[in-house]
Amino acid sequence: MVNPVLFWIIAAITVIPSLALLFARKTVYIAMSIVLVMVGLAAAYVTLGAPFLGVVQIVVYTGAVMMLFVFVLMLVGVDQREDLRETIRNQRWIGLVTALGLGAFLVSIVTRVSIPVAEEGVSGEPDVIAFMLFERYVLVMEVLGFLLITAAVGALVLTHVPRLKPRRTQLEVQRDRVRVGADPVNKPMPGVYARHNALDVPALDPEGKPIEASISRVLEMRDQTQEGESFRATLDDPTRPDSSYRDSTSKEDGR
């Protein structure tokens, strides 16, 4: 017989997180909730006298399957937002009613039957399972081996992307760049004065004008750059004897 406290704990950590499947918005949260459900199920197996299955459940589901799900989530982008508005007419309420009805129906049937419980639960130790697997069910094991191989090959085939064109060499990349009229050489480096780490200071051309292309676009968008002229002006300012002292405040000055 099963400890009731243990049962209620298991019920709680399986049913409640699994509701995330219906109500949570972020897929990663759902995946993590299911991991919890799987752990709860593993506990249930151990409680029911199947320690081997419990371990396998942890290894296979929480360790492999759910991690695979998370990997795939990462591949397709975690920000795949889901619009929760229903698009198929009547799908939502018919689906809910059917699913709930199925659940209620099953529960009602199960509660109506009474099955005498065996006094002594069987031992689900690995050696017992192993004898079963490799004696009575050995043919099924072989067939499952085929199935796994086929599935692995199938996954390879499905996700394989054949290279349609030969890999472009550096020479070809460079030729294309010249052909479309882009910069034939590298863009100029920022920070000609090297007075500080200068990534936010544009380079100056021979006439003394700042070259906008020499600093990162990201810095520009964040408004974290300094205008060349103002910086030069500060440098040339004779009233500032120690220019290196001003570096920390140059950002505010540059505005």
Binding site: V2, L19, L96, T98, A99, L100, L106
Partner: peptide, 25 residues
């Protein structure tokens, strides 16, 4: 406690899973 309760738990979890398949896009 009767292990049949685990069967009931399984039925509930099955219904939740089915609802997820039907409702989530």
């Amino acid at each position: 406690m009767d292990p049949i309760n685990f069967v009931i738990l399984a039925a509930i979890l099955f219904a939740i899973g089915a609802a997820a398949v039907l409702l989530r896009r």
